[in-house]
Every structure is written in structure tokens, then in C-alpha cells.
Simulated scan of single mutants.
Amino acid sequence: MNQQSDDNYLTTAEVARRLNVQPATIYAYVSRGQLTSVRARGKRGSLFAKEEVERLAGRKVEHPGVVERIETELTLLQNDELYYRGRPVRELATTSTVEQVAHLLWTGELAKQEPFPAPADQVELARSAIQVAPPTARMTDQLRIAVAVLGAGDALRFSLAPESVISAARRLIGVLVDSLPGETAQGSLGTRLWPKLSNEPPQPAVLDAALILLADHGLAVSTLAARVAASARSNLYSVVSAGLGALDGHYHGAATTLAYKFLDRALHDPVGALSDQLRSGEPLPGFGHRIYQQRDPRAEVLFELLPDSPVLQSVQAIVKEVPGFPNSDLALAAMMHAYGLRPDTGEALFAIARIIGWTAHALEEYAEPGLRFRAAGIYTGPPIT
């Protein structure tokens, strides 16, 4: 490469200054095909075409409008199927571990992974924080408290390098699970969670499958909240806290609890419970979906894993009378009743699983222009006087 062509290229440091990002982000752009790196003859490091850098910089111009479309390589919902990085979630839920699927979403690689670590001192810190909560606190309340305290205790939380974020996410999930009240177990994430949720004989494979199925679902409201936080360059703990806050709404995370309560009534009289629900004028919990048209693949996988029991028979009796299709909320509710899990299990599983997805979205957002979410407010107040 001669001097004249060198003038048309920038070094990694120069690109980082031009785009106002960390050098590690430059290589994230390369891996995603947004920048192309070349080697200079007789020199170390990579070079990048000025024209390509300026084109990417053009996307970084601040504007007062809304970012209406978010490019993501993570999750695809198409033809009533769900895919993580192009792989069918139906298959992942029964052939991979939670740790493997998390690594797939975070890095694009599906490979054998060690269990999420749970350092004893951090587990003790989280448990101490959880004990402050009142007895009426749900598991999701305990998780929110623990995340805030663990974040405050991590002096390196402000490192947004991908390897630092992934390491923190692995540790956070492991510590959260082990710090919840109940016995501590070894094994898969589902095995570690089971004694926190039920006194029945363990069925961890069902929990592992549920965690995989719930890990991500595109740009749901909690995921969007997490990405907005990541856009402000909030650390992982703050990103997760933002997601947990949105998840707590009764239109989002609480949907599984509503389905659980409905199914509890239906176990004794399916048609009677359905009649009462229809008479109330309220939506039928656990049926239909904003995106899926004819079936929810997550629900189908979970129902296939459940044993034939009065719970499943009640669900089938309700489905026969309803024109819509059961969704993952009803499937989770059926799982909870079938195995005697805590009534707040659905929300907790949803929260723990979705931390995997929020982390993946944060990693993507850290590689985008900062503070790119800026809604245009339309003033409707009194006129200027």
C-alpha cells in the first residue's frame, strides 16, 4: 500500500476518535460487517477506509426524532417460529444448555460452556440484601434488590468491553440463582433453581427448557428499556435493572401470574372458570399473541414436556372451547401447577431468562452510536404567554 492510498485510510485509534467509541467497538463493527479492516504492508494493526468510516459516522449524527427500526442479529420471529441467531429455539430448548444458548446469543457461537459461576462472597452479599425485603416480597422483588446491590459492589462494572460484560453477566445470573431463598444445588441452571421453587421431586430439564425459550423475544418493552439504558452507556447492572423495571408491569411480566390464577380456578371446573372469565369482560389470560398468528412455538415445546395429568387435561378442555391458541404464559402456568412450583415462579423465570437476552441486546447497543434514542415530543400545553 503506497503513501497516496494510505491517505485514504485511518488507523484503529483514528477511527475510534472519529466515531467517539472504544477501540473494542471498532472490531464489533468489523464482526458485524459494518466496517472492513485491511492490513498495511510493513505495519502493525488494521486500517479502515475513510469513505466507509465516514459513511458509518453519518449514522451517528444526533437528531431529535425516534429510532423506529433497530437492526439486530439476535432473534427472529417469522412464520410463527422463533430463532436465536438463525437457530430454531424449538431445537435449542431440548438439545442445548442454558449456558450454551446464552453464549450463542452473546457471541454467535454455540459451544460447550461451564456453569454460571457464583462466588461465595457475592452470594452472601446478595442474600444479605434480599433479607431486607418484607416477607411479602416476590422473587422478582428480591432479584431487583440483589441486582442493585451486586452492581454497587462491582468496582469494574463500568467496563463495557464485550468480554467484561459477558463475564459480569455469567456471574450475575449464577449469583442471583444461588442467592434466592432455598437450598443450594449443583448442576444445570434448572437444577440450581428447582429447590428455590418447589419441594416436589426435581424436574430440572423443564426449567432449563423454559429458561431457553424465554431468553429473548425480540424488542419487547423490557428489552427496549434495556437498550435505551445501554444507549446511554449504562453498565450491565443498570441495564438489567431497567429491564426488570419494565418487566414488572402488569402488561408484561405479570401475564404469567394472571394465567396461573385463571388456571387455578379452571382445575376444578374448566368450563365454569372460562364462563366466569368471559362474563367479566376481561381478556382471557394465556391465549393469543400480538406477533404469533396461529401458534406460540414456546408454548408447544413446554406442553410437550409436561406429563399427562389433570392439569394438562384442564388446559386441553379450555383450549377446545376457545377459538384462539394458548401462549407461553398458559404453558408456564400449567408447568407451575403440574410440579407444585411457587405462584410467582413464572415471573421469576421470565426475569432470570430475560437477563440473557438483555445482555445480548446491551452488547449490540454498546456498538451503536450513543444516546441515539430521542423521541420527538409534541407540545400540547398552554400557549406561550
Rank of each mutant, 00 (worst) to 15 (best):
M1Y: 10
Q4L: 11
Y9W: 06
Y9Q: 02
E14W: 03
V15F: 02
V15Q: 01
A16N: 03
L19F: 07
Q22N: 03
I26S: 04
I26A: 04
A28I: 04
V30P: 14
S37T: 06
A40M: 06
R41F: 04
F48A: 10
K50V: 06
G58H: 12
G58Q: 10
E62V: 07
H63M: 00
G65I: 07
V67R: 15
E73V: 01
L76N: 02
Q78R: 01
Q78S: 05
Q78V: 06
D80S: 00
Y84I: 07
R90Y: 12
A93W: 04
T94W: 01
S96M: 02
L104E: 00
W106G: 01
T107R: 07
L110C: 08
A111F: 02
Q122C: 05
V123W: 10
Q131V: 07
P134R: 07
M139W: 00
Q142S: 03
I145S: 02
A148C: 03
L150G: 04
G153R: 04
V165M: 12
I166L: 12
S167N: 15
R170N: 08
R171Q: 13
G187N: 13
S188N: 04
T191L: 04
P201F: 07
P202R: 14
D208N: 12
D208L: 00
A209S: 08
A210T: 12
A215I: 10
A215W: 10
G218N: 13
R227K: 11
V228P: 08
L236S: 02
S238N: 06
V239F: 02
A259I: 05
A259N: 11
Y260F: 14
Y260D: 09
F262H: 10
D264E: 15
H268C: 02
V271Q: 14
G281E: 07
E282C: 08
G286H: 04
H289L: 07
I291L: 15
R295A: 10
V301I: 10
P307A: 13
V315Q: 01
E321I: 10
G324P: 09
F325M: 12
F325D: 14
F325W: 12
P326I: 10
L330Q: 09
L330Y: 03
A331W: 04
L332E: 07
A338L: 01
G340Y: 14
P343E: 13
L349H: 15
H361R: 03
G370N: 00
L371C: 04
A375I: 15
G377C: 11
P382V: 15
